[in-house]
Computed example of a mutant assay.
Amino acid sequence: MRKLILLSLAAFFSVLCLRNAVAEPQQPGRDTQFIVPAGPGGSLDIVARKLQELLLKKKLVSSFVVLNKPGAGAQLALNVLDQNLGNPNFLMTLPTAIINNSYLGVIKTTYKNYTPIAMLLDGYIGVLVRSDSPFKTAKDLIDQLKKDPDSLNIAIAASLGNDIHVGVAKALMLAGVDISKLTFVPFKSSGVSITNLIGGNVDVVGATTPTIIPALQTGKVRVLAIGSPERLKGPLSNVPTWKELGIDTITSSPQGVLAPKGITPEQVKFWESNFRQVTETQEWHDFLEQNQWAPRFMGASQTVDMLASETKSIEEVLDKLHLKKQ
């Protein structure tokens, strides 16, 4: 009888411990996996690895592993978050391309099914031509496209309807071009787009600043306009903004951080605080300047509001491009 009582007590305490373990929220910052919805070496990957470096350097986390999950319009990366509901140690790069891909039907979910943590930076989209192009200014290009919208091939990476496509099209739309008649040609990467520009296979390229800078330094391309709110520094300091040219738009490719659905407000605050600390370091600002990115830290609630605003703007352009849900 005594043995039976002891066994019953042992079983009771085992169940109690299990319940407590389940009820106890997981501690963020332990064995964290940061999922990048792109391959190694691209802008999303570069940012993720800088975050890893600084979080570990400042001892804000005990472990932070970057994992690349490219493909399917970020769906493969989002699947990891779906498989880890409520777990604060699974994070992902938040590109606004998720909005585009949701509208286009490339992915079957939206950012609303996850937990936005923070927005970190803005990468600006520029328009390039060859250095020997007859288009010396953005006005030259716009005048040609107004007259004959399908006369030029415009290269983008890496898919129709993405942030670069929308960024280029939005500026041209506001300039009076019929963007539904433009010819956009997708390439695997912006690097490949620029190679085809230099080789004469396309006439114009849309790309973000980290890719533009090394291309510009070759002397083989010219940047006609950039989508920043004011002129950038360094090698892009002579490039006019769309705003300077009388076209009131900012064309950017923001990056932030996304977590699974179901994490607690305290866990959101943990990550929001840590990413804020990272983005306040001199190393982070030097990193952004090197790539001509702009700091854009927003906390969780601000990020949600920003994504709602971006959704409206992106869907308007995609509709004008006649890109509908699949």
Rank of each mutant, 00 (worst) to 15 (best):
Leu91Cys: 11
Lys220Ile: 04
Val204Cys: 05
Gln27Ile: 15
Glu283Tyr: 13
Leu67Arg: 15
Asp150Lys: 12
Ser62Gly: 12
Thr303Cys: 01
Val129Phe: 08
Gln27Lys: 13
Glu230Tyr: 02
Gly191Trp: 12
Gln83Lys: 11
Ile194His: 03
Glu289Ala: 15
Ser313Val: 11
Val192Met: 06
His165Met: 01
Asn100Pro: 05
Gln33Lys: 10
Thr96Met: 10
Val204Glu: 01
Asn89Tyr: 06
Leu258Arg: 09
Gly71Ile: 08
Phe135Glu: 00
Ser43Arg: 06
Asn79Ile: 15
Leu55Lys: 01
Gly200Pro: 04
Asp122Cys: 08
Lys58Thr: 12
Leu51Gln: 08
Ala138Arg: 05
Ser159Gln: 15
Lys269Gln: 13
Asn113Trp: 06
Leu81Gln: 01
Leu288His: 12
Leu323Gly: 09
Asn196Leu: 05
Asp132Gly: 12
Glu283Gln: 13
Arg2Val: 15
Glu316Met: 09
Val317Glu: 07
Leu16Gly: 13
Asp305Met: 13
Thr115His: 03
Ile154Ala: 01
Leu216Asp: 13
Phe184Val: 08
Asn79Pro: 08
Gly200Ile: 10
Gly256Phe: 05
Gln26Thr: 10
Pro235Asp: 11
Val221Trp: 03
Leu321Gly: 02
Leu4Tyr: 04
Lys139Ala: 06
Ile194Asn: 04
Lys320Gln: 12
Lys233Gly: 14
Phe34Glu: 07
Val185His: 04
Ser309Asp: 07
Met173Asn: 09
Phe184Ala: 01
Leu323Asp: 05
Lys170Met: 11
Leu120Asp: 02
Ala72Lys: 04
Arg231Leu: 08
Ser309Trp: 04
Ile35Val: 15
Ser309Leu: 10
Leu104Tyr: 07
Leu6Trp: 08
Leu145Ala: 00
Arg49Gly: 10
Asp305Gln: 14
Ala207Pro: 01
Gly191Ile: 08
Leu174Trp: 07
Pro134Cys: 09
Arg2Leu: 15
Leu232Pro: 02
Leu94Tyr: 10
Ile154Val: 10
Lys112Ser: 12
Tyr114Trp: 02
Leu307Phe: 03
Ser133Met: 00
Gln282Ala: 15
Ser189Cys: 04
Lys220Arg: 14
Ala10Ile: 11
Thr211Ile: 14
Ile99Ser: 03
Ala259Gly: 11
Gln302His: 04
Thr110Gln: 01
Ile117Ala: 03
Ser14Lys: 11
Ala23Met: 11
Leu128Trp: 07
Pro25Arg: 10
Ala157Cys: 15
Pro116Val: 04
